[in-house]
Amino acid sequence: MKKTSRQLQKEQTREFLLKTAYEYFSEHGILNTRMSDIAQAAGVSHGTVFLHFATQEALVTEVVETYCGKIALRTHELAKSCTSIQEVLSAHLEGIQEYEPFYTRLVIENRLLPPAARDAWINIQSAVSFHFGRVLERTRGEKQVAALPVSALFNLWIGLIHHYLANGDLFAPDGKVLERHGDTLIEYYMKLIHYETEEEKHGREAHESQKGEMLLRAPWREAGRSAF
């Protein structure tokens, strides 16, 4: 059945309110925002917002479900053809970078959100952990990654990224945490989880012992100027 112009207009207003709320939440926080803030930002009456969303909880839930769905889908699209952990991590960061201010609000506020909204947030992690686990299982036989459970390796990564995002004001005051630190964090994480072969171990130990001897012979040590 064809929709009437009144129905179409109602749908458009709803879409517009969702987008306005998404932008407002990204900038000001989710739970700090009142329905009247959204009405004002959208240039509509308070009553119009209530017509579409009976409660603040309903509005928050729908915005978070809608945009978490988009982020999960985008991450899935980027990660599905990845064949290495490093590629999955890059795809993950690329997927969330498009939504960084909103995603950061979710990192900070997710525990306080309505249950359905929080579930939608966890579903983003599942979209990433699915591909992370898939690639990890495939590369296990090649002994490239430390012998730890998938969940430990995944949570180590998520914890790292979320710590940087949650404290973005300290790591990148301009607000672009992933642009500034993303590549470095991938590099450090990959080094951290790298499985050390016997050959690499011997090479590292030889290098460390050589470095130790050089330090012992350092002129400033002989001159007794060391502060240590």
């Binding site: 992690q125 599942s126 952990s129 686990g133 459970p149 998938v150 969940s151 430990a152 995944f154």
Partner: peptide, 8 residues
Amino acid sequence: GFLIRTQG
């Protein structure tokens, strides 16, 4: 099982 295995 998936949630336990991949996210602990």
